[in-house]
Simulated scan of single mutants.
Amino acid sequence: MGEIRQDMVRNNLLRLMSADSFGRLRGDLEWVELPRAFELSRPNEACPYAYFPEAGIASIVAKSPEGQQTEIGVIGRDGMTPASLVLDAGHDPYSIFMQVQGEAYRIPYASLQALIHEDRDLHGLLARYAQALAVQSAYTALSNAVHHIDERLARWILMCHDRSDGNEISLTHEFLSIMLAVRRPSVTTALHMLEGKKLIYSERGVIIVRDRAALEAFAHDVYGECEKEYERLIGTRP
């Protein structure tokens, strides 16, 4: 691949950082494909690379000692991973992997860490993103505690749609049950309810957003606050 041009990348953080910051990163960036289930980082292990997704969707998943797990964050071309790098935390206890295949620019962890320490503007942008991701996790916890599965599913579909090209999202019922921490039959029932309201189509392994505005109206209280915070901290979402 030739020289990477900032005006041609799709990742929002790469696009919005200063030209000087991008120039410092550019020489260390490497384009890579990210197949489904690819692990971007493992729990409590140092990650060799940081990733700036161009396409696809990654999940941050927390797992209990007894094996219970749920998704606590979603990353697409709006962000980067791992955020622990920005916070100088070394590693975190979560699993981060691709739930929808895509591609990304990656940079060696040590290289980005050194650049963050040298470049105040770069550090500020990525630190604001780490805050936006923390807010997303907080609202996920709130939603899991107080909202019905139908609304939680609507929010999750909207968040994936925000990070996707077109209206199709490739996901299985089994994967949805893990992401929402519910049994598979509950996912099936919730999907049928959203289909009955003509908000989505659900086919084998694929969800198709049919009416985005109506889906947002249905989600109502459960969607939008962390998106507003991203706009405030970072700027226009991709």
Results as ranks from 00 to 15, higher is better:
M1W: 14
G2M: 04
R5H: 13
Q6N: 08
L14A: 08
L14E: 12
L25P: 13
L25H: 11
L25T: 08
R26H: 02
P35I: 05
R42G: 03
R42L: 13
N44F: 11
E45C: 06
C47E: 14
P48W: 08
A50N: 07
F52Y: 10
E54M: 08
I60H: 13
G67Q: 05
E71C: 13
G73M: 04
D78Q: 13
T81K: 01
H91S: 15
D92K: 11
Y94P: 00
M98W: 01
M98C: 10
V100S: 11
Y105D: 14
Y109C: 02
Y109P: 02
Q113F: 10
A114M: 05
A114N: 07
A130H: 10
V135W: 03
V135C: 00
T140R: 12
S143I: 03
N144E: 11
A145H: 00
V146G: 01
H148A: 15
L153F: 05
R155N: 10
W156Q: 13
M159F: 05
D165L: 08
G166T: 11
S170N: 11
H173D: 15
L176V: 01
A181L: 04
R184F: 00
V187Q: 07
T189I: 12
K197S: 13
R204F: 10
V206R: 15
A217L: 05
A217Y: 00
G224N: 12
E227F: 04
P238T: 04
